[in-house]
């Protein structure tokens, strides 16, 4: 703050020092610094207000509003009734909310191993070829830029129980395909398959970037020392890849707990809607279908706290296995 050489200072307080005729100069300087200060404040406002005002209006205010609403019983239209922590207490006994949270966890449990193992396999393979690497990488990344809604619609058609190509191919192999998104058992796996297909390329790019940072001479030295492919992978590549793995894990868990678009498009309104309902979908339904806004807000905060907790635990645990070299 006090260093006068900073360009910010230099800009705002041009040559206010070193004049003759003390009294008048001091008064003039006082006016000038007051003016300069005002101008400086104006500059700060000019640069910050365009982002600060919307963030306050559309993030901070709704955040506080959401907490406030979660302490009330309200149907969006009538008067709000104060219930304190009643909505949170009711949540503990709400089977639908628990099932939605459970489905969200199941989704992550199915999705994460698929994208990680698949993405790692692709990254390892791509790291070993030179010809056509950019082409393959570009192709694998294609679903990542496609919107969730389109991905969900494409897979809903591929996995259509009667007309879909997947069940037709299964039939050719003599397998009676399941009802996929129409079936209570297969709805969540259908969503997981579509999601993994979309995100595989993203995980691949992150892990490939990590792999390319693995120094080749270390691997070569290990090879010379007689370490087999598996041992080199297990003891050199995986530890060096742990920061990228950590990044994928944290990002996937955060976005996994917030999964909505693909589930809504694939199963909402269908026969397996209830069996595959996830947490954000429950928040949406509670608000706009059942008019239980207080319950919805309470659930959204619980979900936020769960995400926060999972992230904090992951960051804490990273010291045990993430190797930043």
């Amino acid at each position: 703050m006090s260093e006068t050489t900073s360009p910010a200072r230099a800009l705002d307080e041009p040559a206010a020092a070193g004049r003759a005729r003390p009294a008048a100069a001091v008064r003039a300087a006082g006016r000038r610094t007051a003016g300069a200060r005002l101008r400086k404040a104006g500059t700060v406002v000019l640069f910050l207000a365009p982002s600060a005002v919307p963030l306050v209006l559309f993030t901070l205010v709704p955040m506080v509003g959401s907490l406030w609403v979660s302490l009330h019983e309200w149907n969006l239209i009538g008067a709000m009734r104060w219930v304190g922590l009643g909505n949170y207490a009711a949540l503990l006994r709400d089977g639908d909310a628990w099932r939605a949270l459970g489905n969200t966890v199941l989704y992550i449990a199915g999705y994460l191993p698929l994208v990680y193992v698949g993405g790692l396999g692709l990254a390892l393979a791509l790291n070993r070829v030179t010809r056509g690497r950019d082409l393959f990488r570009g192709v694998y990344f294609l679903p990542v830029v496609t919107s969730w809604v389109v991905v969900a619609l494409i897979w809903k058609w591929l996995l259509n129980p009667s007309e879909g190509i997947v069940n037709k191919i299964l039939a050719l192999l003599g397998i009676d395909g399941p009802g996929w998104w129409t079936s209570d058992t297969w709805a969540l796996p259908s969503v997981i398959i579509a999601s993994a297909w979309k995100d595989l390329g993203f995980v691949m790019v992150i892990l490939l970037a990590g792999l390319q940072a693995v120094p080749g001479d270390v691997l070569e030295a290990a090879r010379v020392d007689g370490a087999g492919a598996w041992r080199r992978f297990r003891h050199i590549v995986l530890p060096l890849l742990s920061p990228s793995t950590f990044f994928v894990l944290v990002i996937s868990c955060i976005s996994g707990f917030q999964v909505f678009d693909q589930v809504y498009v694939m199963t909402s309104g269908g026969p397996a809607a209830a069996a595959s309902e996830v947490a954000v979908e429950r928040v949406y339904d509670l608000t706009f279908r059942y008019g239980r806004v207080g319950d919805a807000s309470a659930l959204s905060w619980v979900l936020f706290l769960v995400i926060l907790l999972v992230t904090v635990v992951q960051v804490r645990l990273q010291r045990r296995w993430v190797d930043y070299g």
Binding site: F58, P62, G65, S66, Q258, S300, W301
Partner: peptide, 11 residues
């Protein structure tokens, strides 16, 4: 996250 904001933002 958006899901916390979506209801109060709508209101």
């Amino acid at each position: 996250p958006m899901q916390v904001l979506v209801v109060p933002l709508f209101i």
